[in-house]
Amino acid sequence: MKGLLLPVLLGLALNVSAAEKREEGVPPGTGSTDVRKEAGEAIDAATTKARQERDEFVDKAQKEMAELNKKMAELRKKAKKLSGEAKAKLDRQIQNLEPELKAAEQKLADLKSATGEKWKELKAGVSGAIGRLKQSMQKTREGDS
């Protein structure tokens, strides 16, 4: 057993010494520690950028949703002032818009808590829902003018 231990320890010492010499001969910034550090910094930067992009999109979408909610309130207020067939028509249109509005709000809520690649998928859903809602409201406003 003693005869086996000495060669193993000697081999380990030589491997450590060789690894240290390899690190010494490596140009600055290319050692394994430096590469790991740079990779970590790159990941942090990408994560920060993605978070910032998501936050900017969420802010924009929230502003659009606030504007759409305001327009919906205006339509409801207008419907209260109308009577007869005009009121019935606008009430139906509002009823059709409400589920779209709720769906867009839910998608935005889901997006706020999403991370990683999931938020990119949800971003498309939020954009589409807001776009469809804007078109529907525009048609409603044009139709009752």
Score class of each variant (00 low, 15 high):
2 K>M: 08
3 G>S: 08
4 L>I: 09
5 L>A: 12
6 L>E: 13
10 L>Q: 13
10 L>E: 09
10 L>S: 12
11 G>I: 08
11 G>M: 13
11 G>E: 05
12 L>D: 01
13 A>H: 01
16 V>Y: 00
16 V>R: 00
17 S>H: 12
19 A>T: 15
22 R>Q: 13
22 R>F: 12
23 E>L: 10
24 E>I: 13
25 G>I: 15
25 G>D: 10
26 V>M: 11
31 G>T: 09
31 G>K: 05
31 G>F: 03
32 S>V: 15
33 T>W: 02
33 T>R: 10
33 T>P: 03
37 K>C: 03
38 E>C: 03
38 E>W: 04
39 A>F: 10
41 E>I: 12
43 I>V: 13
44 D>C: 07
45 A>M: 08
46 A>N: 06
48 T>C: 00
50 A>R: 06
51 R>E: 13
53 E>R: 02
55 D>P: 00
56 E>H: 04
56 E>C: 02
57 F>V: 07
59 D>T: 15
59 D>W: 08
59 D>P: 00
62 Q>A: 08
62 Q>R: 12
62 Q>G: 00
64 E>H: 05
65 M>C: 02
65 M>T: 06
66 A>D: 12
66 A>R: 11
67 E>C: 01
67 E>S: 08
70 K>S: 14
71 K>S: 10
74 E>K: 12
75 L>W: 02
75 L>F: 04
75 L>Y: 02
76 R>Q: 14
76 R>I: 05
77 K>V: 06
78 K>H: 08
82 L>D: 11
83 S>C: 04
86 A>E: 09
86 A>D: 12
87 K>M: 09
87 K>Y: 11
88 A>M: 10
89 K>V: 14
90 L>R: 04
92 R>P: 02
95 Q>N: 11
96 N>Y: 13
97 L>W: 00
99 P>Q: 00
101 L>F: 10
101 L>Y: 03
101 L>I: 08
101 L>H: 07
101 L>V: 04
102 K>F: 12
103 A>I: 07
104 A>M: 10
106 Q>A: 15
107 K>C: 04
107 K>E: 14
107 K>W: 09
109 A>H: 08
112 K>T: 10
113 S>F: 05
113 S>G: 07
115 T>P: 04
115 T>Q: 03
118 K>P: 11
123 K>W: 03
123 K>P: 01
126 V>A: 14
128 G>H: 07
129 A>F: 11
129 A>L: 10
131 G>K: 07
132 R>K: 14
132 R>E: 15
134 K>H: 09
134 K>Q: 15
135 Q>L: 07
136 S>C: 03
137 M>Q: 09
140 T>H: 00
141 R>W: 11
141 R>M: 09
142 E>W: 09
142 E>F: 07
142 E>L: 10
144 D>T: 15
145 S>E: 14
